[in-house]
Amino acid sequence: MTTIAPDRVDLTEIDDAPDIDRGWSVVVWNDPVNLMSFVVYVFRKLFGHSMEEATRLMLQVHNDGRAIVSQGPLEKAELDCHRLHHHGLWATLERP
């Protein structure tokens, strides 16, 4: 027995999680030489953070050893990472 019309196919079963960009995190790591004031300035300048938010992130880097300072698609995250490197901050990228 056959039929012309194909059986209904459940697309959600075969179309396994399309490769959407779920976003990347830019992580800044603590280093003992960069000044706290300079790190606050860089966060304000590059990301437009308020003084309070930039200071909170700087203290998180200082106390916890690292902080996520921006998130977004890979292209934007890589640009942010590059700009941080240009300012001498130790930055890496990771999936949240």
Binding site: L35, S37, F38, V40, Y41, R44, K45, M51
Partner: peptide, 15 residues
């Protein structure tokens, strides 16, 4: 360090 800190403080005042 002192030079960088002084310059940062002056620039932060202008942000």
């Amino acid at each position: 360090s002192a030079v960088q800190d002084e310059l940062v403080v002056a620039l932060l005042g202008g942000l």
